[in-house]
Simulated scan of single mutants.
Amino acid sequence: MFYWLLKYVFLGPPLKVLFRPDVRGLAHLPRSGPVILACNHLSFSDSIFTPLIVDRRVTFVAKAEYFTGKGIKGWLMRHFFSGTGTIPVDRSGGKAAQAALETLLRVLREGGIAGIYPEGTRSPDGRLYRGKTGVARLALESGAPVVPVALLNTDEIQPTGTLIPKVMRVRMRFGAPLDFSRYAHAKGDRFVERAVTDEIMYEIMALSGREYVDVYAASLKTSIEAPTQRSSRRDDVAPGGR
């Protein structure tokens, strides 16, 4: 009940008035049955606009820390994520990916819509990065069609590190459903999973118009952060960085 009140009464209507969504291809989304929404990931606000635009309930997963915060901010985040259909996943112990996939598989088996960001993390610079094969495993295990989704300008609306989004028209594109039932016999084949994932990422690239980079976004972030960390350690030892 809270989900529907938040989406259709408290949050949805004012957001649609403020951000005037420009959405194309929404008719590609099946009206019933299990569906996987595979989206590029530019901003924290992606998880706000995608469920807002789709009439059916969309379920994403998020780290459990978003649901355990203290104070007013923690209360607001907990109720926001709960109200938008987000499910918490414990990321400790190195089993986060498996826990997320199992959660989304349950959603699909119940005939719902599972939202996933194949890149695994937000793009550090707006480009589209190599997809992780979890989206392929999800498609092959469930048999659900994959609808590619491109968010075109959410990184301009809410750049990484900013709290208050800029009020401007949000633009989204939905592609035709991708059917991978021809690979149903190849569950667990890592070469097939890679091929399926690359096909999904190609469709997202075509919809978004963003440059594609064939490396994982998380690896790039690590390489960017590493020199800074090394520099910090040198500064602690030798003033002036020498």
Score class of each variant (00 low, 15 high):
R234W: 10
V237C: 13
S231P: 01
G143I: 08
L6Q: 14
T68Q: 14
K63R: 12
G94H: 00
R234S: 14
D125S: 06
P34Y: 09
A97N: 06
R122A: 07
K221Q: 14
H28A: 11
T68W: 11
T162G: 05
G188C: 04
I36E: 01
L207R: 06
G12P: 00
R122T: 08
V107H: 05
D214C: 04
K63H: 07
L29I: 06
A27V: 05
D90L: 05
S123T: 11
E156D: 10
I204F: 00
A144F: 06
G131K: 11
D236A: 15
A139P: 04
F2E: 05
L178F: 04
P14V: 02
R109Q: 11
A226K: 15
A99H: 12
M77C: 12
K95P: 01
A136E: 08
R20H: 06
A27I: 08
R56A: 09
M205V: 11
Q98R: 11
V146L: 07
T68D: 11
S142F: 03
V9K: 12
V23P: 06
S45F: 07
A206W: 13
E102V: 08
P13Q: 07
Y202L: 12
V54M: 13
K187N: 02
S232A: 15
T222G: 13
R78E: 12
R109M: 11
E225V: 07
G71V: 08
V17Q: 05
V9S: 04
F67V: 03
P145V: 13
S181H: 02
V192T: 10
L207Q: 04
R20N: 03
G85Q: 06
D46F: 03
A186F: 09
R56H: 06
S142W: 08
G74D: 05
T50Q: 09
G69C: 12
I224S: 11
S123Q: 08
T59F: 07
E225N: 10
S32E: 15
D55F: 12
K73E: 07
V147Y: 02
E199S: 14
I116R: 08
E119P: 00
V89H: 05
V192Y: 01
P118T: 00
G143A: 09
T222V: 14
V147T: 04
F19I: 02
D90Q: 09
E141K: 15
I200Q: 02
I36M: 07
S223C: 10
D55R: 15
A139L: 08
A226P: 01
H79W: 14
M168Y: 02
